[in-house]
Structure formats: structure tokens, C-alpha cells
Amino acid sequence: MRKIKKSKTPISDIEVPTQIKNPELVRERRRQIIDSTVTLFIEHGYHKTTTRMIAKAANFSIGSLYEYVSSKEDLLYLVCKTIHEEVWDAVENALSDTDKEEERLARVIRHYFYVCDKMGDHILMMYQVTQFLPEKWKARILVNELNITDIFINALSSLSGKNNFPKLDEKILNLVGHNISVLGQMWAFRRWHLQRNFTIEEYIKIQTDFILGLIF
């Protein structure tokens, strides 16, 4: 099976400078800060949330916070980056299994939807406030969004025409890839309503049947 390649223009930690030299510590502390940031952005809004509020919520001094990030925009960008990384890892892990093609695709969808459920607040907040990022980072976020969709397109391409899996042309690969991406995010956007009628497991089953119906 072809292994999905990551973006040719990966986002490095250099773009979000830090004074800390230990990469693992940076990742751990930034995740702690990111989770607190999301909660505050949702509760108070992007503009009313200050870095001092974020530092307090994350149990950092304001000086310590600035060792890991330099601005509120840094934090917003890191939220988006974290979402994309979680999706990538979930899908790659699902593709590493050796089940039949249809079952492997269903697993990819399931893992992705679970990430959308787990990070629903993060995803919703990302789309609400990305407009406040500097232009260079807005462009990167859009690239990362398309890279997420490319994960599904590449996964479908790697399964296409194998055994009982239908051969899909480029247009259908693209359409189904975007369908998977958007349907997962829809749970995050409309969870407030969908949860009245469906559990996440029920939603996954219905949408997986729908997506497979586009192929088989």
C-alpha cells in the first residue's frame, strides 16, 4: 500500500518561535496552553481574551507564557496546527491496518470523525476566528485544510481498483475526499443539533454508509 506523504511545505516550530530548547517540553506545554486558549476564546471571544487571561488559565506566569509563544495570534495558529496534526495521525494509523479495502476506508472515516468529535470545540473556534490571523498564516491554514482533504484523496487512490474496490477517476476521488472532510467537520459545526437525534457512533455509521454508497 502506498504510504501517504506529508505536505511538501510542512509547518515547522521555527515559524512560532520559542525560547525553550527541548522540543518535547515545548509540545507538552503548548498543548496545555492551547487547550486553555480554546476554552477562553469560546467563553469570552477572541478579542476579549487577553494573553494574561490565557497564562492564568494555563497555570503559567505571563513571562513563562511568552517563552513558548509571542502573541495571541501564535496561539490561534497553533490551535489550527494541532487540529491538523491530530487528524493526520488518526488517519495514518487507520491506514496502517491490513483489512480489506472497504473496511480500511470505513476505519479511516471512523477515526477521522472521532477526532472531529473530540476536538469539536477546537474546530468550531478555528473557523470562527481564523480571519484574525496574519495573511501569511491564513494562507498556511488554507493549505493545511486542503492537505487534510488530500489525505482522504490519497487514501482512496491507494485503494482504488484493488480487489473488489471500484476504480475511481480523478473527479470522483476528489469529490469523495471532500465529502469525507466536510461531513466530519459538520459534526463539529452542528453537534448542538445533531446530538439531539444521534450519538457519534450512529452518525458515523450513517455517514459511512452514505460515503461508501458514492463508491460501491
Rank of each mutant, 00 (worst) to 15 (best):
K6D: 11
K8R: 11
P10S: 04
S12F: 11
S12I: 08
D13P: 02
K21Y: 07
N22E: 03
E28L: 12
R29T: 13
Q32K: 14
I34G: 10
I34K: 12
T39H: 11
L40E: 11
F41E: 01
I42P: 00
I42E: 07
K48V: 02
T49N: 05
T50V: 00
R52K: 15
A55V: 03
A57M: 12
A58F: 02
F60S: 12
I62Y: 07
G63Q: 13
L65C: 04
Y66D: 06
Y66N: 03
Y68N: 02
S70H: 12
S71I: 09
S71H: 10
L75M: 14
L76P: 04
T82V: 08
E85R: 14
W88Q: 13
D89S: 14
A90C: 09
V91R: 00
A94E: 05
D97S: 13
D97G: 13
T98I: 07
L105A: 02
L105I: 06
R107M: 09
R107L: 13
I109T: 06
I109N: 03
H111N: 15
H111P: 04
Y112C: 09
Y114T: 06
V115S: 12
C116F: 04
C116V: 06
M126E: 07
Y127P: 01
F132M: 10
F132K: 09
L133D: 00
P134V: 14
E135S: 10
E135F: 10
E135Y: 10
A139H: 09
R140S: 07
V143S: 09
N144R: 05
N144V: 00
E145I: 14
E145H: 15
L146C: 04
I148M: 12
T149E: 08
D150L: 05
I151E: 07
I151A: 08
A155Q: 06
L156C: 03
S158L: 04
L159N: 04
G161E: 06
K162L: 13
N164A: 13
K167S: 15
E170T: 04
L175I: 10
H178M: 11
H178I: 13
S181Y: 12
M186P: 00
W187C: 05
A188K: 00
A188M: 01
F189Y: 12
W192A: 14
W192T: 12
H193F: 08
Q195T: 01
N197K: 13
F198D: 11
T199W: 14
T199P: 12
I200N: 01
I200R: 00
I200L: 08
I200E: 02
E202R: 00
I204L: 03
Q207R: 09
T208L: 06
T208M: 08
I211L: 03
L212F: 02
G213R: 11
I215C: 04
I215M: 04
I215Y: 05
